[in-house]
Amino acid sequence: MVTDHKQIGEALLQVNNVSLSFGAVQALSDVSFEVREHEILAIIGPNGAGKSSMLNVINGFYTANEGSIVYKGISRAKMEPADVARNGVSRTFQNIALFRGMTTLDNIMTGRNTKMHRNFIWQAIYIGPARNEELEHRRKAEEIIDFLEIQAIRKTPVGRLPYGLQKRVELGRALAAEPELLLLDEPMAGMNTEEKEDMCRFILDVNEEFGTTIALIEHDMGVVMDISDRVVVLDYGRKIADGSPDEVRGNQSVIDAYLGVSRE
């Protein structure tokens, strides 16, 4: 039963005063915001505002110079990316980062790797426990394939797929891990209107059917305003606004950041 009013809960992830620099380049300075359970949060901002860096910090791929990340009530300054993923954070990438040599099915199954536990001796023997585990996860992977309507390309190596489908497979791989927090880095970049509509529908469905919390980076303002519950705006590594789409739309500093401001 899908209701119109989602139950947006407590903060699932808090970003506290995070700063990040590469040499002399200050990518993020003193950024704080939170992602609440079951919501869709959009992070927007001009190019180079530090959006992708922000996701990378949340992922543990970059370590913040200052500040901390609190995820599910546990604070951390540094964590291995693999451990972050195992704790229920999965993501897609701005430039598609699929495993090109593998088929769609294998890519999605790889997303479930963290949920599989048979050791390599069982796997070498295969018959028995490893096979059962494999089949059980295949079933789950097929559910995602059905959900994303990519049955026909199940056994196609992803390198051969068109761009829009690759994006979809990448979403599938992220979903396969059954994440609590899904980070989407420009899920609609480079798509045509129809593909964007499809992708929007998938994002909303994921959010409503699985209750997954989503944080996404997107440049298409129409999409952002339509689907997100809340918007965080970054500019030059600083947070300049945080609020509902309507609030952000009217915010003067956001308008300045996007349209430029004349300096007397």
Binding site: E80, A82, A97, R100, G101, T110, A177
Partner: peptide, 24 residues
């Protein structure tokens, strides 16, 4: 199986593999 997919994931895109939970 799982191990083979982890290997290939590391081969094809090691950073992405790490970010989806494969220990490099």
């Amino acid at each position: 199986g799982r191990i083979g997919r982890s290997w290939m994931a590391i081969r094809d895109m090691d950073i992405a593999a790490e970010l989806i939970g494969i220990r490099p």
